[in-house]
Amino acid sequence: MEWTEPGVFEVAPGVHRIPLPLPNDGLRTVNAYAIEDGSGLVLVDSGWALAEAETALESALAALGRDFSDIRRFLVTHVHRDHYTMAISLRRRFGTRVALGLGEQPSLNRVLARSRDERFADLVSWGASELVPKWRAAWSAVRDEELDYEEPDEWLTESDLGLEKRVLHVLPTPGHTRGHVVFVDSESSLLFAGDHVLPHITPSIGFEPVRPELPLGDYLDSLRLVRSYPDLRLLPAHGPVTDSSHARVDELLAHHEERLAASLAAIGAGTSTAHETARRLGWTRRQRRFAELDLFNQVLATGETAAHLDVLVRRGLLTAVDADGVRRYSA
């Protein structure tokens, strides 16, 4: 069975995976995890606040003999809308408590302040000015995303959360976003990984309203941190449950070293900006050309490339000079 099929699936005693649909998204589905907690439930991630996703969640809860009022708490791995906004929607109706990593506060404040200009400035810095008018037009066609957002009830830092029958360790794992967290259930050998460790794809890096200085460096450090824990059953937000967090972390670390080498080679071959370099690299497992990507993925790819080039600068393999708002790299 495909992991995207709707339903409710027990992945460990008292833990159920609930796939929820995404709109017009190559990922297609996001996993929420319902943890039995006494007379109620705790959900890790919530899904996107969409009618079809709410219906799917309601049906899954009914299969467990539950309803929305049984959800006591949402533990959200990061602020992206496919993880956070359903929690806010249901809180407005049922008063459910919502928790989010403290590192997401700057980006959430920016969203609530209705400020989006930094993404345009990033494109200019990456040498992708040609994408700015297309990106601006795409944003203007989208309804205000701020309507889906509010602050959480609780900001999470590294700590132990005691549920009735288990303890979840909150582990900050910045990289995909600066406030991403995972939840480690050591006794049951489970890792609620959000988008930090995904079984089939690599998560985007640093695509957020307040981008940190070195998002890929943060991500690689966070991967090594998770690798320092015992090998755990991987419960990802996108993709099937797998048995080894270590195996996938090792693959992700190797993948990024390969991308760093390819990025360095592109600069050596004559590119100078993140956008020029992204256009020279292959994308996805099929090594698609940059021009074949849609606008959203072209922006992601350019930002990813900038993140890799900045790590190469930090390692002393490249130099970077900012002039006229554009960052240019050289060996």
Rank of each mutant, 00 (worst) to 15 (best):
E257Y: 13
R17Y: 03
V311H: 07
D218G: 04
L232R: 07
R73C: 05
G179W: 06
K165M: 12
V321T: 03
L190P: 01
E292R: 11
L234S: 06
G103E: 07
T77Y: 06
L312D: 01
L43Y: 07
A265E: 13
H256V: 11
T157M: 12
Q105Y: 04
A128P: 09
V11E: 05
V167S: 07
R72C: 02
G26I: 14
V132D: 07
G175P: 01
S69T: 12
R286N: 09
L100D: 09
I201T: 15
A291Y: 03
S107P: 08
E58I: 03
V30K: 02
A56K: 04
R143I: 06
S244W: 15
L102R: 15
T55P: 00
R166F: 08
R136H: 12
V79D: 05
D185S: 03
H176I: 09
S189C: 08
S244V: 15
G101Y: 03
A121W: 06
E118C: 06
R328F: 08
P19G: 05
E276C: 01
Y33D: 04
V79Y: 08
R248V: 14
H16M: 03
I35P: 04
L260Y: 14
S140R: 04
R28S: 09
G316V: 13
L171I: 12
L260D: 15
R280G: 04
R72K: 14
T302W: 03
D37K: 07
E304C: 03
L214A: 15
D148E: 01
G303L: 08
L235V: 00
T55R: 13
F68C: 01
H308K: 13
G103H: 10
T271V: 07
S89K: 06
A193H: 09
L318M: 02
T77G: 06
L123W: 05
E251S: 12
P199N: 03
I71N: 04
L41F: 11
R280I: 10
L123G: 04
R110V: 11
D243C: 02
A113C: 06
S244Y: 14
A247H: 09
S89N: 02
I35Y: 02
S107L: 09
L20A: 08
T4W: 09
M1H: 15
L123Q: 00
R73G: 00
G194S: 13
E36M: 10
L214T: 10
H80M: 05
L64V: 08
W126Y: 13
E208T: 11
R166C: 15
D153M: 13
Q298R: 14
P203R: 02
V132R: 14
W283R: 07
T302G: 02
F192Y: 04
T202R: 05
L57C: 09
E154F: 10
